[in-house]
Design a protein around this nucleic acid. Structure first.
Lengths: 129, 129
DNA sequence: TGCTAACTTCGACTTCACTCGTACAAGTTC
DNA sequence: GAACTTGTACGAGTGAAGTCGAAGTTAGCA
């Protein structure tokens, strides 16, 4: 992921950028050494959450995405629940951009602690029934 | 422990049961193409079941093992529950040897469908607390 | 100042999974 | 056949997790 917090010599006067010049702090999440396999597996054992993580991995991972970007047909309160579960298990990182809460997969951390796991998520396809 | 299913010729009357084959048939289990990642992850998200699978993988995998072999400090009915869950998810194969029901990991099937997953189980260690 | 959008928090409901006691079944051994 | 061993089946209790409506919070904006 490219570091975009570098102070540019040209002071930004344009304010409608999708990405603020300073990256917001991530919401509370477990440190890489606190990631637990059983917790990560448990949080990934849900088809909806597998869909979320897989979509994050496949499409434009270099950017964060809002909850609404996924186009999931669930109430917002349900989505909040699942995104929170993913974040507290250490699978995704969430940052607050003004009103929006954007997410991306902690790919480097997961590849370090559980190599190959995200490849299984990418290869996953929903059940056909 | 080797299988001891050899029928003794001193049996007075052969019941109307079929002659036992060399290797007992596996208990009902999903075919390899029916293995579902979300189901396998869900069944492996339990520390006790991770312990069972990891022990099967690490110690003398070439043999089947009975439930009692694991030395788990749980009632038998609880162990039955977990072994059944593992078998129905496709993680282990169980065969009936007389009184005993022996289990081993479906390593080849899992490596084919979910490469790298069992390596994560082997590398897993229980939480220290 | 008030409206809107994006998301959270709360709470209730439901469903599901884990735990385990009890009873039962099937081989083994004496 | 009786006792023992190994494990299953059933069912109840408990707690965790998913679902989602309703109300609240916050940032941007007119």
């Amino acid at each position: 992921m490219p570091p975009k917090g570098a102070a540019t010599p040209t002071a930004p006067v344009v304010r409608d950028l999708p990405e603020p010049p300073v990256l917001p702090e991530p919401l509370p999440e477990p440190a890489i050494d606190d990631l637990r396999l059983e917790t990560v597996l448990g949080v990934l054992s849900d088809p909806l959450r597998l869909t979320i993580v897989r979509k994050l991995l496949l499409e434009r991972e270099q950017f964060d995405h809002t909850c609404g970007w996924f186009g999931l047909d669930r109430p917002k309160s349900s989505l909040t629940h699942h995104f929170k579960a993913l974040r507290e298990a250490g699978v995704i990182r969430q940052r607050q951009y003004g009103l929006e809460r954007r997410s991306h997969v902690r790919r480097a951390d997961l590849d370090t602690r559980f190599p190959g796991l995200l490849d299984l998520v990418i290869a996953w396809t929903p059940a056909t029934r």
